[in-house]
């Protein structure tokens, strides 16, 4: 059974290994600074399909197939699939699960879905619910753009503080047995809203939620930022991570070189995405490639992975509501150094 620490944090009793991960990204992401870490890239963002929604689904299905193949298991071995995406009614994930024939839990945490899925999966495994759980999340620039913003070919200027939705999928397999880095602790975040209404400024909308979760985690565990090799936030982007650093400083915690942000890492400045990447696929693809590989080869021993989500809808936004944010946190340790 998981042990409760403080208010929101749970330390897991069993080692929950992440035995395998897989990523598929689009062309823009492949041309970014992390290109060496992404295994699969699709040059055709339509994936040979007629609509972008179908393309996103196909990418998701391929990503799940890939992770199963890498772990040398079949879909019959999976006890549960947990995942989500950005689209209304989680169509990508729900429709992908249709073709898999495995028990499925759809979760929505906007861009925080990867850490949310990991946290749920790890807790379930720790409690003895199933033995192998697959987590998969992803997003597609073209479907997100049409749902949350404007038609693709519309000639408008993007705000300098905006972010770019990542076309990418990430999936991983968690198991009580086997090898690989272990999920040690989870912190479930609270919905936090500091009144930001500008739909383009998601970094600023999510930063308070990230601060709340991270601060609570440090308080609950009585640890400090320097105790971790990497503190990775989801997709705050450059502006959002600067705001998070400021907010954490106010609370008495200094985030230094070991702090990074997936959104900030995934694109280079020359790719004109302004503040960086966002979307469910952003933290998923960075975590399942770059971070996982560095955990496996022991460059990182103990990390905090905290994906953040902006939980707005276009309807509430047009009705003048502000944007609530959320952040869920997992601590992952390399198994060989675990106590």
């Amino acid at each position: 059974m998981a042990k409760r620490l403080g208010k929101q944090t749970y330390a897991l009793e069993k080692p929950i290994h992440i035995i395998s991960t897989a990523t598929i990204v689009g062309e823009k992401e492949k041309n970014g600074p992390l290109k060496a870490y992404f295994e699969h890239c699709t040059e055709d963002d339509m994936m040979g399909e007629k609509t972008f929604e179908k393309a996103e689904r196909k990418m998701m299905e391929s990503c799940i197939d890939l992770v199963l193949e890498k772990a040398h298991i079949t879909e019959q071995d999976i006890d549960l699939l947990i995942g989500g995406d950005l689209l209304n009614q989680l169509v990508t994930m729900n429709y992908s699960a249709r073709s898999l024939n495995v028990p499925f839990l759809g979760v929505y945490g906007a861009c925080s879905t990867m850490s949310e899925s990991l946290a749920i999966a790890a807790c379930l495994l720790d409690a003895g619910v199933g033995e192998i759980i697959t987590c998969a999340t992803g997003s597609h620039f073209s479907t997100a753009e049409r749902q949350f913003r404007t038609p693709l070919e519309l000639g408008n200027q993007r705000q300098t503080y905006s972010q770019w939705t990542v076309t990418g999928m990430g999936s991983c397999i968690l198991s009580c047995k086997g090898k690989g880095p272990c999920v040690r602790m989870v912190t479930f975040g609270k919905v936090t809203d500091y009144g930001i209404k500008d739909i383009a400024n998601m970094g600023a909308a999510m930063a308070p939620a990230a601060m709340d979760t991270l601060y609570t985690f440090f308080q609950d565990t009585k640890t400090e930022p320097k105790d971790y090799d990497l503190i990775l936030s989801g997709d705050l982007g450059k502006l959002g991570s600067d705001i998070l650093k400021d907010l954490m400083r106010e609370k008495g915690y200094i985030l230094e070189e070991n702090y990074e942000d997936c959104g900030h890492m995934i694109y280079s400045a020359s790719q004109k995405t302004f503040q960086g990447g966002s979307g469910t696929g952003c933290s998923a693809s960075v975590f399942c490639s770059y971070v996982y590989k560095k955990l496996c080869n022991k460059q990182f021993k103990k990390i905090i992975f905290m994906a953040t989500g902006a939980l707005m809808s276009t309807v509430t936004n047009q009705q003048g509501d502000s944007i609530p944010g959320i952040a869920h946190l997992v601590v992952i340790e390399n198994s060989s150094v675990a106590k």
């Binding site: 200027q157 300098t160 500091y194 009144g195 400024n201 600023a204 502006l239 705001i243 400021d246 302004f274």
Partner: peptide, 22 residues
Amino acid sequence: ERNKKYIEYVELVSPKASWGKS
């Protein structure tokens, strides 16, 4: 009050497009 302060702060740190260039 907290939100008002935060929104003012965000306004301050968010990068602005250059008027002259635009």
